[in-house]
Design a protein around this nucleic acid. Structure first.
Lengths: 169, 169
DNA sequence: ATGATTTAGTTGAAAGTTGAATTACTTACA
DNA sequence: TGTAAGTAATTCAACTTTCAACTAAATCAT
């Protein structure tokens, strides 16, 4: 039994112009935005994903997190984190440490060099968030955006729970 | 001379809670949203990018577009399009045709099979746009979203022009 | 305890993406 | 007209991500 049988039946409800405009403006802007922001970070030899990983580590107690937890909150797969860690380890930004309580586990630990790297990158990145997005929004816009996208995340989570229950992972 | 010298100087203007909330809710939702939508399309053996390419072709006169133009409007690189076309060609959805007016050029042409594939996928995809995003927004939300993201795209374009002029491509 | 199952994390191969180099053709202009 | 510069598209090589398989340790059920 592979995946969900989801082939739609019945007349689909096409998007009206307002809906279409919302959807199109959203993806077009998102694509361009992320592209620009990745480019901004390249000056520090970082991708957004790598930045996120370092940022999360720098916030964590002892600047260390278990691999699984890091993958989870960075929203990337365990496998991907493993591979990236190898690269970041080679760059000297992080190192892995065995976990005493659970011998299967490892901690990702931020090194001093990693700390310096993110401290250096952070102002540029904040600047990028501002120049590329936040500063073009009024306070009201910012609040609208939060409300809208928090709702979207919430709905996605609900759907995930419902679908996840029936799809088996 | 590689890239822009952009290392920020002076005290960075950190994000206030409202700004941070807007930014975080936006990226978190976006990541989850795109992930869910890619998954929805997998039932039709399509990625969002491939869907977009087919959708653009299906709308084009004669269901054909020059490679460069297609890459441009699909917002992917020429190189990437070349590679994807090879895959889609193997799947029988598209074929390449020499361009008589400009012998360097090629048309990407949608086949009958490609047409059938997208006609089959489209209702599910619209459904996905609705279930994952549009239907959770009020009409007002939709209008807000359009306004906000159109503005963002516009600003990005302005910046691109300014920066592009000094960076040389 | 002991075997079965789950969980943490890694690995290797395949597939996808990128950017630079390359090929073939077109255009501009002296 | 000939040649330099530009353009269309592909290819190569490096890198990234995914997927499935795997190891090892922990937990669970009897």
């Amino acid at each position: 039994m592979a995946g969900k049988i989801s082939t739609y039946s019945g007349e689909p409800k096409w998007l009206n112009p307002r809906e279409m405009a919302a959807w199109r403006s959203y993806i077009v802007a998102s694509r361009r935005l992320l592209e620009a922001m990745e480019l901004d970070l390249e000056n520090h030899d970082l991708s957004m994903a790598d930045y996120e990983v370092l940022a999360l580590l720098s916030d964590a107690p002892g600047r260390r997190l278990r691999m699984s937890e890091l993958a989870e909150i960075a929203m990337i797969s365990k496998s991907r984190l493993s591979h990236r860690m190898k690269v970041m380890e080679a760059a000297g930004w992080v190192r892995r440490e065995e976990c005493a309580e659970d011998k299967r586990g490892y901690f990702a630990v931020m090194t001093d060099k990693g700390w310096k790297a993110i401290v250096k990158a952070a102002p540029d990145h904040v600047n990028s968030v501002r120049n590329r997005l936040v500063d073009h929004l009024t306070s009201k816009d910012q609040e609208d955006l939060s409300k809208i996208f928090n709702r979207v995340t919430e709905k996605l989570r609900d759907q995930f729970i419902k679908e996840g229950a029936s799809i088996k992972k």
